[in-house]
Computed example of a mutant assay.
Amino acid sequence: MAPKIVSVINQKGGTGKTTTTINLGSALSKTGKKILLIDLDPQANLSYSLGVEEPQGTLADVFTGSKSLNEIIVNQGNLSIAPGANELVDIEISLVTQPEREKFLKNILAEAKGYDIILIDCPPSLSLLTVNALVASDEVLIPLQMEVLTLQGLSQILNTVKQVRSAFNAKLKVKGIVVVMFDKRRKLSSEIQEYLEQNIAERIFKTRIRLNVKLAEAPSFGKSVLDYDPGSYGAQDYQALAAEFLITK
């Protein structure tokens, strides 16, 4: 059976996109699922956060054809990582002139065998690399902070998904919106979530990822929060999200 491919996207940086990819992936792997994380962000924060600092190859090498996907994958038990690299910026520029430039990642991921779920950590922009991710994906997961400006960004993301669905990938759907960095002490957080629930047709996961210092500390140790501090709120929330993710159609 082919793996389920899910793009984790938000065009704004610092929104918990990479944190969600890492820790949802880790939580899913601990349920026995075989998970592959694709670090498509040129900043390669996902790779660094999981202790992958000097890999034998990166996604940039796969895009250029100098290595296969299987040659660059770093295995950490049920969780595997395809590392990113700064060179992905150059890859994106070179893709502009290529025929079927939107389908490079889709063809690359056709090599991925033996995984249940592939999570793609997209760049913090609605770029050609992000379009490649959406064309390759079955579903989209959107981490969202409860801030006023995120509502504008959400409409842009949903519009991009609609355009990609229309032009390249008719099966693409929104898996759901994940509320991240939730602070119950702030009235604004609850107000924005209430607005979303009343005005956005897409699913909003019941699990909310609370603000938690352990989530910020874990990358310094090259670990997911579930391995760094399994008793923390951050670990508990991502375990709950993983359980909800698996039962959500």
Score class of each variant (00 low, 15 high):
K34Q: 10
Q239K: 15
S68G: 14
S94V: 00
I91H: 06
E202I: 01
S232I: 12
G234K: 09
I108Y: 04
E139F: 04
P123Q: 09
R203L: 12
Q198K: 15
V8A: 03
E217P: 10
G231T: 15
V135C: 03
P99H: 04
E244C: 13
N23G: 03
V140Y: 05
L24Q: 08
V164N: 01
L46G: 02
L105G: 12
A133Q: 14
G32F: 07
A112C: 08
I118D: 14
F63S: 01
E100H: 10
I38Y: 10
A218S: 15
G234N: 03
V179E: 03
L119Q: 02
E197C: 01
T31C: 04
I177F: 14
N86E: 11
P230Y: 10
S47Q: 09
N199I: 00
E147I: 06
V52N: 09
G25E: 08
G77E: 07
S137N: 10
S189F: 05
V6K: 06
K214Q: 12
D229H: 11
F182A: 11
Q11K: 03
G51D: 09
K106Y: 02
N132A: 05
T18A: 09
A167N: 12
I93A: 07
K113Q: 11
D116Y: 06
Y233Q: 10
S80Q: 00
A27I: 11
G176M: 04
L154E: 05
V161I: 15
K162W: 04
I73Q: 01
K34I: 02
G231A: 13
V180Y: 01
Q163R: 11
D229K: 02
V8C: 08
A133C: 14
L141Y: 07
E53A: 07
V89N: 09
A44V: 12
S190N: 08
D229I: 04
L109N: 10
Q198M: 09
D237F: 06
L129T: 04
E139P: 07
G114I: 01
G57Q: 06
Q145D: 13
T21K: 03
S29F: 08
